[in-house]
């Protein structure tokens, strides 16, 4: 009588055990996960698992508090973890997931959804969010006695992990890329958080893994560029990475009816800034001019263009005055 259930359980146990062994083996040998046995075991279904694990990482980021699809429909869609990239750096832009609907984020823009009004840290590690956050309690949720009772047993505050607690997300990110080595979001998210946790070497290795599996991804080149920029080791390398990101973006988006101009704006903004800092003002100007065409904040970009032109003019006048 219990045979079907036991068979199902046994199957699940076998899959879990196998997953464990494969992960362990991959971790020990540092294998290229595009050839992971998990991809062979799960077939195309692995993409669903990968997305689920990435969502799981986001749930961990919120200490188990995660909105239902109904709540998300009432607030904003998208993986919060992906959306959160860069917010900690104040005005840094970030690469968005395909369903992200934030406003434009060129240099100088502040993430509109995460204007934190305070960091009332809880007992462990994390900070609470205000109601404007995408994951906050939505208005209009049915309020019957069962829902009220159930809410007393769920994690009830919106908090983010911090102070080292973010490491708890890492296994899910790793699982996501093991399951789907073509999940670019998982690589960019993982790269960001590894750097954020003071693991730049691991972050770079992880992103390079992602690049091996997704050699045409502008997002991963962009994230590598950001990592290089943060490490402030080699601005030439940084500029090259952003330039490659731009090249890959064009390869992927040119000819599309609706190109991802948001990503383009971010790349151009970053590349322009690096070029500017390296003194390559002509190249920086070129970037900013392109950026102005796609930016939602043309005035800000124009100010940057004016500034560069001023510098260029000074450079031209200085040798003449001599």
């Amino acid at each position: 009588m219990r045979r079907p259930v036991l068979m199902l359980l046994l199957l699940m146990v076998c899959v879990l055990t196998l997953t464990g062994f494969v992960l362990r083996e991959d971790a020990l040998r540092g294998r290229d996960n595009s050839k992971s046995a998990l991809a062979v075991i799960f077939g195309d279904g692995r993409r669903l698992f990968a997305n689920h694990f990435l969502t799981k990482a986001d749930e961990y980021f919120h200490r188990g508090r995660y909105p239902s699809i109904f709540e998300m429909a009432e607030t904003q869609p998208g993986n919060h973890l992906v959306e959160s990239l860069g917010e900690e750096e104040g005005n840094e832009p970030h690469v968005h997931g395909p369903d992200c609907d934030h406003g434009a984020e060129e240099p100088g823009a502040v993430h509109p959804d995460h204007a934190h009004d305070g960091h009332a840290g809880d007992e462990e590690s994390g900070h609470e969010h205000d109601a404007s956050c995408a994951h906050a309690e939505p208005a209009g949720k049915p309020d019957d006695w069962i829902a009220r009772l159930a809410s007393r047993f769920e994690p009830d505050r919106h908090v983010h992990l911090e102070g080292g607690g973010e490491k708890e997300m890492l296994p899910w990110i790793q699982l996501a890329v093991e399951m789907d080595p073509h999940n670019v979001d998982a690589y960019t998210v993982g790269g960001y958080w590894l750097w954020h946790m003071g693991k730049p070497v691991e972050a770079e290795r992880f992103l390079r893994d992602g690049l091996r599996n997704n050699p045409d991804s502008p997002e991963i080149y962009f994230e590598l560029g950001r990592l290089s920029e943060r490490r402030a080791k080699d601005s030439r390398l940084t500029a090259n990475l952003y330039a490659l990101s731009l090249e890959k973006w064009h390869r992927a988006n040119d000819g599309l009816a609706e190109p991802d101009t948001l990503a383009l704006a971010q790349i151009l903004g970053r590349l322009g800034r690096v070029k500017e800092s390296r003194g390559e003002l002509d190249a920086a100007l070129e970037c900013y001019l392109q950026l102005k065409a796609v930016s939602h904040s043309a005035e800000g970009v124009q100010r940057q263009i004016d500034s560069i032109r001023e510098q260029l003019a000074r450079q031209t006048h200085t040798p003449q005055s001599r």
């Binding site: 146990v13 708890e168 890492l170 296994p171």
Partner: peptide
């Protein structure tokens, strides 16, 4: 035994040289 074995196996994996991860 299966629960214990799978848990211990999963627990023995180290992610990104971080051996204090507990929640997963």
């Amino acid at each position: 035994v299966l629960t214990a074995a799978i848990t211990l196996l999963m627990g023995s994996i180290t992610f990104f040289n971080e051996d204090t991860i507990a929640r997963y």
